[in-house]
Design a protein around this nucleic acid. Structure first.
Length: 820
DNA sequence: TCAATCCGGGG
DNA sequence: GTGTACGGATTGA
């Protein structure tokens, strides 16, 4: 049965106006809003011009009192002369308790600033000045958000992701510097799936200007709802804007507003142009993103970051790497290193045309796969779709939901408040044992913090309507529904993508509810006490899990926040492992679900958050800074992987064999130079290094100079090594990222003894915890220093040593809860 | 060696 | 008018 309370809570999550198909909103302070809707049945686009009453929340009315009779209560009888400003007092104790509105928001703000200027006896021309002088006394949203909050509308209702018209375009340029380099090609992909390649007819101003004009015309003709690209806001739009300004080409990518690209302040934006900000001289460069009224500008890089935030599986965030990883790269996809694109174009234009087309097609596929998260959020949150695409979950998603809910309830909102100085306490991290463990199990609690908030009803003290907890409850339920829907939807269908994306988006929001409370004075309802109560309960639960697992005969290894690694006795089966996890799960509070996350043949526990896991299928997983570094010499990394595997398999003789073989390979120079080299990124230009060289010499640059290479760019990556004579060596010149050159002319003149020492001191050292000190010394003794009295290697076994961390000296205790 | 700081991406 | 990541690599003391 659906109660009235349930309906209210649904409004908190979804808004209350069912208007379908909104694909873009553009509003201005004068109270006019343009709403573009895509009709699902006919695919037609309609534009509706609306009027709304711009509004503000203020802490007091004294600055508006000067208006006299032109300030009137909302419920005052209407006369022919509408008062300039209407006001309504909101209920409750929040500081922002006066809702004020006017036909024209500019006059509302002007009246407020006029009053404040007189009261403070200082001229104020902008709301931000008042907000700086008196923080927390005014809440002013961008016009579109005022409109969406007031109407209860949201984007994309009853419209599937694939019904939105999306266009992708990608610039190919002669370089990365828009002051100097040019656009020579643009690839476009239309909503229909058709693609086009536009090219400059010559390499002068006229050709480039024409190319820009053609791009703008094509966008206007196709009239998409959404424009997409990878790093659109970080590269393509700023580059396009700059080139158009330099060439004097007026451009507009929107459906409304005048010529030129508009900007908005944005944290993840690019620094505004290099000219000084004359409107506010003392300020540092603000960061901006471009806006095209009537269209949503979506950067797939944002979607990738959001996705990787929860999965943490992407090798990088570049388009090519992500497309490959997600399996959407075309077979035979053309790859050209960025710095070679223009030169390749001069020699093989067709290859670059194909490359640019591959780019837009990958962006379209990527957006379809990952873009649904922001799309799903836009159906709930009263903000523009493009704002939700790059919004942080706390202030970007949760806060607007809270603001809308409070206003809907007619309740006053609290202002941001600094904490009372109570420090924030974090999660528990314990290393119980280090060394080599066998039969290892990982158990963890899914979404621990939101679950604790729900179980113990921990919400911000100032959230007297209980909106945050209600939202978390609703979002968790909605997420479970989305997951179920995704399972039953046709594989690959738009519905499945959308449901999966919804689930992913909701997970992010749910998990950030805790972060919202813990965010100091940065969020409106921040509550460090509530946040600390969540982490305290979390530490309790972790302690309980550890104690109860240990009581069932396992050996604890490491516990971190919401999960624990432990080893089980030799005779246990997987069923036994699952049984103890299940038993302990029953002891935890309702909604706190302990899950069997994985099982491993063995684990090398090195330091907290630094370990190696050997799967039953033979895969070796290395975690933590001690085990992975991009600068690590390939021979050392290879040694480490092989030696850890042998050690975890109990093959001690094999460990020594690998060690000795590696030393031999170094001394006999059977290892290519590449394997002893280190990959470094250059940060100094040739000029900068020449000036710094007098005071301090650096190996990478010396390697370049010694190799006769005088030209390089900051950001280039090279492989360097140490030569026999102590000089710096360079491996096969400049290396593009992710690209290891083959062994062309390999002199193999590296300092073998230096690398033998490195093997012992930095690489073998990572295995020290797995053996007793004497055994370790024996195992990694040099061949000629091998002790005569040495015992057989077969008698050396790996060890797992307790670190001394124990459950009894934990300051928290929790009795097992009843039921599960 | 450790702790602040920067970076991620685009041609 | 923004938005509080995070883990690795680099830089500075």
């Amino acid at each position: 049965m659906t109660s009235a309370t349930d309906l209210v809570r649904d409004e908190w999550l979804w808004g209350w106006d069912p208007t379908p198909g909104i694909v873009s909103v553009y509003a201005s302070q004068d109270g006019r809003a343009s709403v573009w809707r895509r009709l699902a049945e006919t695919d037609a686009l309609v534009r509706e011009e609306e009027r709304f009453r711009p509004w503000l929340l203020v802490a007091h009315l004294r600055d508006l009192a000067l208006l006299g009779a032109r300030l009137a209560p909302d419920d005052a009888p209407r006369h022919r002369n509408d008062p300039l400003v209407r006001h309504r007092e909101l209920s409750g104790s929040g500081a922002l308790r006066h809702f004020v509105s006017a036909r024209d928001g500019r006059r509302l703000v002007a009246a407020l600033l006029d009053g404040a200027s007189r009261r403070l006896q200082t001229p104020l021309r902008h709301l931000s000045q008042l907000q700086r002088l008196e923080p927390g006394t005014v809440l002013a949203l961008p016009p579109e958000e005022q409109y969406l909050v007031a109407t209860g509308r949201t984007y994309f209702q009853d419209l599937a992701f694939d019904q939105v018209h999306r266009l992708q375009f990608d610039l190919e340029t002669t370089g990365l510097d828009a002051r100097r380099d040019r656009i020579f090609m643009v690839s476009i992909r239309y909503h229909t799936g058709e693609t086009a390649v536009l090219e400059a007819r010559d390499d002068g101003d006229a050709g480039e200007a024409d190319l820009i004009r053609t791009l703008v015309a094509r966008v206007g003709d196709a009239d998409p709802d959404v424009i997409e690209n990878h790093n659109l806001h970080g590269f393509d739009l700023p580059f396009l804007d700059r080139r158009a300004r330099i060439l004097g080409v007026p451009i507009s990518l929107g459906r409304a507003g005048g010529p030129g690209l508009r900007m908005r302040a944005a944290r993840h934006g690019v620094s505004e142009s290099d000219r000084p900000d004359w409107s506010d001289p003392g300020s540092r460069q603000r960061r901006v993103r471009f806006v095209a009224p009537g269209r949503e500008l979506i950067d797939t890089l944002d979607a990738v970051r959001r996705y990787d935030f929860s999965t943490r599986e992407l090798p990088g965030h570049g388009l090519k790497a992500v497309a490959k990883h997600l399996g959407i790269a075309r077979a035979g996809r053309v790859y050209i290193p960025g710095s070679e694109i223009y030169t390749t174009y001069r020699a093989e234009p067709d290859r670059v045309r194909r490359y640019a087309t591959d780019d837009v097609e990958e962006v379209a596929a990527l957006s379809r796969m990952l873009g649904g998260a922001a799309y799903a959020l836009a159906r709930m949150v009263p903000r523009r779709y493009e704002r939700l695409a790059d919004a942080g979950p706390a202030t970007g998603v949760i806060d607007p939901l809270l603001v809308r809910a409070y206003l809907r309830a007619g309740a006053a909102l609290p202002a941001h408040e600094q904490g009372d100085g109570t420090p924030h306490s974090g999660a528990a991290l314990h290393l119980f044992a280090s060394g080599a463990a066998h039969r290892v199990v990982k158990a963890d609690v899914a979404s621990l913090y939101p679950s604790l908030m729900r179980v113990y009803r921990i919400g911000p003290a100032r959230d007297r309507l209980g909106v945050l907890l209600a939202l978390v409850d609703r979002l968790v339920e909605r997420r479970l529904l989305a997951k179920a829907n995704a399972r039953t939807a046709a594989p690959g269908s738009a519905e499945q993508h959308t449901e999966e994306a919804t689930s992913a988006a909701l997970k992010i929001v749910v998990n950030s509810a805790y972060g919202y409370m813990a965010a100091g004075g940065l969020t409106r309802f921040a509550d460090v006490h509530a946040a600390n109560e969540v982490t305290r309960r979390g530490r309790e639960v972790l302690a309980l899990m550890c104690r109860e697992l240990a009581a069932r005969g396992v050996t604890l290894i490491e516990a971190d926040t919401d999960g624990v690694y432990f080893a089980v006795p030799e005779n246990w089966t997987e069923a036994d492992e699952r049984r103890v996890v299940g038993e302990v799960a029953m002891l935890l509070p309702r909604l706190v679900q302990l899950e069997f996350e994985g099982r491993y043949a063995a684990m090398l526990s090195h330091e907290p958050k630094n370990y190696a896991l050997l799967g039953y299928d033979g895969t070796l997983l290395l975690r933590g800074v001690a085990f992975r570094s991009s600068r690590a010499e390939p021979f050392g990394e290879a040694f480490l992987r092989r030696a850890i595997r042998r050690a975890l398999l109990g093959d001690t003789a094999g460990v020594r064999e690998i060690y000795l073989a590696t030393i031999d390979a170094l001394r006999n120079r059977t290892l290519p130079t590449h394997d002893v080299s280190s990959l470094v990124r250059l940060t100094k230009s040739p000029e900068a290094y020449q000036t710094a060289r007098a005071t301090r010499r650096e190996l990478p640059y010396e390697a370049l100079l010694a190799a006769g290479r005088e030209q390089w760019e900051s950001g280039d990556r090279i492989r360097v090594y140490r030569k026999r004579n102590g000089e710096a060596g360079l491996v096969s010149g400049l290396v593009a990222p992710g690209d290891d050159m083959g062994a062309a002319a390999d002199p193999r003149d590296y300092d073998a003894e230096f690398y033998v020492r490195l093997l012992r001191t930095t690489y073998a050292e990572r295995l020290a915890r797995a053996f007793g000190p004497e055994d370790f010394a024996t195992l990694f003794a040099d061949a000629d220093q091998y002790p005569l009295f040495a015992y057989p290697l077969e008698s050396i076994h790996t060890v797992l040593a307790p670190t001394g961390a124990s459950l009894t000296n934990w300051d928290e205790s929790l009795e097992p809860a009843q039921g599960g």
